[in-house]
Amino acid sequence: MIDYLVTVLTEGSIFAIMALGLNIVWGWSGDFDLAFYGYVALGAYMTLVLTVGPATDPTTYILGLTLPFPLAVALAVVSAMVLALIVGAIALRHLRGIYFSIVTLGAVYVLYVVTGQFVPLFNGYNGVSGLFDPMGDVLGLDYSSYSFFYLGLCIAVLIIVLLLTTRLNGSRFGLALRSLREDERAAAAFGRDIYVTKLKAYVLGAGLGGLGGALYAGYLTAFNPSAWSPVETIILYAAILVGGRGSTRGVVLGVAVMVMGLQEATRYLPEIANQPSFAPALRLIITGVVLVLFIRFRPQGILPERRFRDKDPAGKGDAAAVEPVVTGPKLDTGAA
């Protein structure tokens, strides 16, 4: 039972990291990016090929180094960001709305097909494997305590990511991103460089996706194309939508409901139905239904994005009355 809990929590925190990254792109900057899972996958693959050592005969993949896990994770994040920079630089230049989504969908399919078909890259459809208990031997952990260690690691990373996003959330950068989401033309009329700002958000989001992917690779010990059909992105979108698009706490809640909760709720189904694909299929059906219902009836989610509230009934622009009440950080880091 405790093992099961550890599994669910580890997966939950990894998906929360990914969802927080996607939330920057979709929640704040407002772009429906279907390539996101590609960055997750690249992060996972890079982590593997940087740590597991050279390929042995039937398998082939690039690099094959034996770097320490943290360094490999950092490099994986960087490569995801570089890929996002390339895709974003092309797609964000002129495209918005469905055209942007279609091109990013195209990008991820190209990546998917190339990964699967071009075997020398990441060993094709068989994928890369062999990352057992990263950092376990350095820290001298045995198998049973290792899963607790990895859970702790994932939660620690999640907390750092949460601190980072919360800080950005109320910052001028976060506010400027919101203005792009709300009305691009007005944002440009008031001096915002839409392309560069959106691109920054896109690359940052992809970096968090890559980070989630890197941790996912350490958790799964292996990665192959069947682990990341591009449809996977929809689950992250469903989590964000249910929790509250743009809202950091909402996204965490959304992952808890749509990833961990749904997993838990459909856990005993395979035995009942006596059909291996039944539970995953049912989960996807529920995800699809939830997506439709939330867009229709509660697009702001369970915990909607909060706006900055100015509490100062008597303040009407009187500097003396205002100064003690509202302080800088409130505007800059308070939940906007």
Binding site: L175, R178, D183, R185, A189, E305, R307
Partner: peptide, 16 residues
């Protein structure tokens, strides 16, 4: 009019 509809009126001003 092109306000930023999802933001508060005050945020609209700050963003100007």
């Amino acid at each position: 009019p092109r306000e930023w509809p999802g933001l508060s009126v005050l945020e609209n001003l700050i963003l100007a």
